[in-house]
């Protein structure tokens, strides 16, 4: 027997930590989603698809801009000292992933803006007509466009990686404290973005390509999940207890039903049939992938806060 009785009853801390509500999982999901879209859009630019009229690289940056702003807004909502948020930008703390993240988010905006300039949306052109000539000049230089694509891919990768490192650097929570978490979040972000572009792409080639790519990302995601669980199960007692939270504990049902089955296996099966021309492309599979990606963040954030070094807390 090992029984703990604690007189502490602090709000958001006891009986188990719950300091981050819906805002952080949504922010992490939108960050990963935007990262995936930047990588896809950057890849198309690198491949010179900006010559195609319907290339998704023209509208993905604007969607990314809106979604990243929404993500930053949820982050702002999470702060208890909201009016002090600007303090993030008065310093840079090299050991703090959150400080890195704050500055990465700021660097992402100009990159998205340069991407938007390649083909500015109609409402912007009406207001600032000079944008048209800037866009023409940029598109006249294929190497410049390629370089913008490479920078977008790199920036997207950094953003996607950061969303995982933010949690995995918090050693007090054994479930998060795995160095493969950033891979999981990056692959999940890529699969959600590929599913989204697959769903909305006007170009048939892009739709086919991204359905195939998404199948690859989803397959990779399964392997990463297996590796993450294996890593936790072969680590310390606290990490084994943390893995059991999603294997058989209170978060197991939501993880296996919504994240793995609905978010990965079923859409993978549907999309495999679609790319092999057995059935038509359907938006159902991409919607399931995107929902699965969002629920993954909710499960990881909630279960991670529940995990603890002192395993009496699991009883």
């Amino acid at each position: 027997m090992n029984e703990l009785t604690n007189t502490r009853n602090n709000l958001m801390i006891d009986p188990s930590m719950n300091v981050w509500g819906w805002e952080i999982p949504v922010y992490l999901f939108l960050g990963g989603f935007v990262a995936g879209m930047m990588i896809i859009s950057g890849y198309f630019l690198f491949k010179g698809r900006n010559k195609e009229t319907n290339c998704s690289c023209f509208y993905l940056p604007l969607i990314s801009f809106v979604l990243l702003s929404a993500g930053m807004f949820t982050l702002f909502l999470d702060l208890e000292h909201k009016l002090y948020f600007w303090r993030l930008y008065t310093t840079f703390k090299i050991a703090s992933p959150m400080s890195w993240g704050a500055w990465i988010l700021i660097l992402i905006y100009p990159i998205l803006f340069v991407n938007i300039l390649l083909r500015p949306p109609g409402f912007l052109l009406k207001k600032i007509q000079r944008l048209n000539s800037i866009s023409e000049k940029m598109n006249a230089h294929p190497y410049l466009v390629k370089n913008i694509g490479v920078i977008s891919m790199l920036a997207g990768a950094v953003l996607g990686i950061y969303t995982g490192v933010l949690l995995s650097s918090l050693g007090a929570r054994p479930l998060w404290n795995t160095s493969i978490l950033w891979v999981l979040f990056l692959v999940s972000g890529l699969s959600s973005a590929a599913a989204f572009v697959h769903m909305i792409a006007k170009d048939v080639y892009e739709r086919e390509l991204l359905a195939k790519a998404d199948n690859g990302f989803l397959t990779l995601e399964i392997f990463v999940i297996i590796l993450m669980i294996t890593g936790l199960l072969t680590s310390s007692e606290a990490h084994i207890q943390a893995a059991e939270l999603i294997l058989s504990g209170p978060f197991a049902a939501s993880f296996w039903v919504f994240v793995v089955t609905v978010g990965i296996i079923i859409p993978l099966f549907i999309q495999l049939l679609a790319v092999n021309h057995k059935i038509k492309h359907t938006p159902i599979a991409p919607i399931m992938v995107i929902a699965g990606g969002l629920i993954l963040r909710f499960v990881i954030v909630s279960a991670g806060q529940y995990s603890h070094w002192s395993h009496e807390f699991f009883k």
Binding site: R8, N10, L11, M12, I13, D14, M17, V19, W20, D78, L79, E80, H81, Y84, F85, R87, L88, S96, M98, L170, G171, A172, R173, Q305, H308, W309, S310
Partner: peptide, 24 residues
């Protein structure tokens, strides 16, 4: 200087911190 991002709460293995009602 605290923006109350709660990273320190999550990083503490002893759960020794909390958010004061005044927001820090």
């Amino acid at each position: 200087e605290c923006i109350s991002c709660k990273a320190c709460l999550a990083s503490c293995p002893y759960d020794a911190r909390f958010i004061h009602p005044d927001g820090y």
